[in-house]
Nucleic acid binder design. Structure first.
Length: 265
DNA sequence: ATGGTGGATGTTCCA
């Protein structure tokens, strides 16, 4: 089963690119972030037309928004809280009917956190830290013991080689120590980093390149903001990782590229 | 130290 996570940065603007993702990667499950479409304006017929009879969506006007498209049946899991009581549509959970049995799937869009890495001066950074802390408390209280996959744009690049320059980004939001410490605590509630099972932590690995760069490939100032975590019982099921870097050169691209993980489920 | 680009919205916010 191939699970893809992708921050699409406007679903309606990039419907042709979603179709291209399906043609090129043929995912079984697609987790989207930053759909930027209210549920009532969601392109209702598109998932089925692309081969995904099942979909869940949780959007709002202008900002945020997540969606899951699936070839296998799934049911929504609504047990998680409204993070930071903001109703800001950053999380969807589902239980997938995988061939080997049910699998729980979480699709997260963690707040980006603004520019200034000081929670006292920057409410967006404070929100980001609080969001990750709340998620950590939740998963500590409700551990994902087994058969759980967590994906999304977590907006944190934790490792030295998850950014183009550890030295130059250590005070840049997405790579600060308080974010990294909190992200590790979240993962340590019961997950392992699936992407790093395929690419050693000593090797550069990016999923995002800023729009504010004329030659993204030439300068290659990337960050790994998008993640796939699995419960340890799924480690023997991991088969492949595809970071679809070519998508950064698609016409009118997202600044994030799709990440696919294959699991024998 | 600064500004660079893009999406949704609406004369600005967010990333």
């Amino acid at each position: 089963m191939r699970v893809v996570t992708w921050n699409i940065n406007s679903l309606r603007l990039r419907l042709p690119l979603l179709e291209r993702l399906v043609a090129e990667l043929s995912p079984d499950v697609i987790c989207l972030q930053e759909t930027k479409v209210p549920d009532e304006l969601f392109p209702e017929q598109v998932p089925a037309r692309l081969g995904y009879p099942f979909h869940l969506r949780r959007g709002m006007k202008g900002y945020n928004g997540v969606a899951i498209l699936s070839r296998v049946p799934m049911r929504r899991d609504d047990t998680a809280p409204d993070w930071c009581l903001k109703d800001d549509r950053r999380h969807l959970a589902a239980v997938l009917d995988a061939p080997s049995g049910p699998v729980t799937l979480h699709d997260f869009y963690v707040p980006a956190g603004g520019d200034v890495p000081d929670p006292a001066a920057n409410p967006k950074y404070a929100h980001k830290l609080a969001f990750v802390e709340e998620a950590t408390r939740y998963f500590a209280a409700h551990p994902a013991h087994a058969r759980c996959v967590l994906v999304g744009d977590l907006n944190i690049a934790p490792g030295e080689h998850d950014v183009w320059s550890h030295r130059q980004l250590r005070d840049v939001v997405s790579h600060t120590e308080p974010e990294i410490v909190r992200m590790r605590a979240w993962m340590d509630t019961g997950f392992v980093d699936a992407m790093r099972q395929f690419v050693p932590p000593t090797e550069k690995l990016y999923t995002w390149w800023s729009y504010r760069n004329r030659d993204w490939r030439g300068s290659n100032r990337g960050r790994r903001l998008d993640h796939v975590w699995v419960t340890p019982d799924l480690l023997p099921s991991l088969r492949d990782l595809v970071v679809h870097v070519a998508a950064r050169d698609w016409p009118q691209p997202s600044d994030h590229v799709p990440v696919a993980v294959d699991l024998a489920l």
